[in-house]
């Protein structure tokens, strides 16, 4: 699969949130305003691309030779969680500006299932290292796109008259569902048309 195809696949067709329903907690939790949604989106993109690389290396250089592939889920959880912690420390030490922008979101991603999801999908799809990295970035961009769109909708909704029993999370889930239906327009046929 070409890198462009991977990009289109994970941003639009198999969007982690809107098509695969992974990582819904930050999608609902941090989408109350556009600013924090953008911060969260970039933090997730950042972590996903690094996590894709690290888990690919871990799987191919350690788990596969040792015949421990059945441990991949639990080992990936450990790796991603520690990786995020480490990245947080490094960022805090060397780039206070970046830490201010991303820092508060990083701990929230330690156990995010979207990050875990893209790591496992990479292995299952048999990507090589660069394809995994591309998939990681693409999935992150897909997440960014979804959460920013969602936050814009929610900001708009603040001023609308919403029935009281639907206020907050319920109406957010309903609009998220409608958005997911809209994203169903992107399917495999689109990819075939684009890359032939």
């Amino acid at each position: 699969m070409s890198y462009f195809a991977i990009l289109i696949t994970y941003v639009f067709i198999s969007n982690l949130i809107l098509a695969q329903f992974l990582g819904l907690c930050p999608f609902i939790g941090v989408s109350k305003n556009v600013e924090s949604a953008v911060g969260m989106g970039f933090a997730v993109t950042f972590v996903m691309s690094i996590a894709s690389l690290v888990t690919w290396a871990l799987y191919h250089f350690i788990l596969l030779p040792l015949g421990l592939t059945y441990l991949q889920t639990i080992v990936f959880i450990l790796t991603i969680a520690s990786l995020v912690q480490l990245v947080e420390m490094v960022v805090q030490k060397y780039s206070p500006v970046l830490y201010k922008a991303l820092g508060i979101y990083l701990p929230l991603i330690t156990t995010n299932c979207a990050v875990m999801g893209i790591a496992l999908i990479n292995i299952q799809s048999g990507y090589n290292v660069l394809e995994s990295f591309t998939a990681g970035i693409a999935a992150g961009i897909g997440f960014l796109l979804a959460i920013v769109l969602m936050s814009a909708i929610r900001v708009q909704m603040e001023t609308e008259k919403v029935p009281r029993f639907l206020k907050g999370a319920p109406i957010a889930f309903i609009s998220g569902g409608l958005m997911a239906m809209a994203f169903m327009a992107f399917d495999k046929a689109l990819l075939n048309n684009l890359v032939g």
Binding site: L78, S82, L86, M89, Q92
Partner: peptide, 12 residues
């Protein structure tokens, strides 16, 4: 990993 993080948190 835990030890690594502990060392890192000291150093950083």
């Amino acid at each position: 990993l835990g030890t690594g993080l502990a060392i890192a948190s000291r150093k950083l």
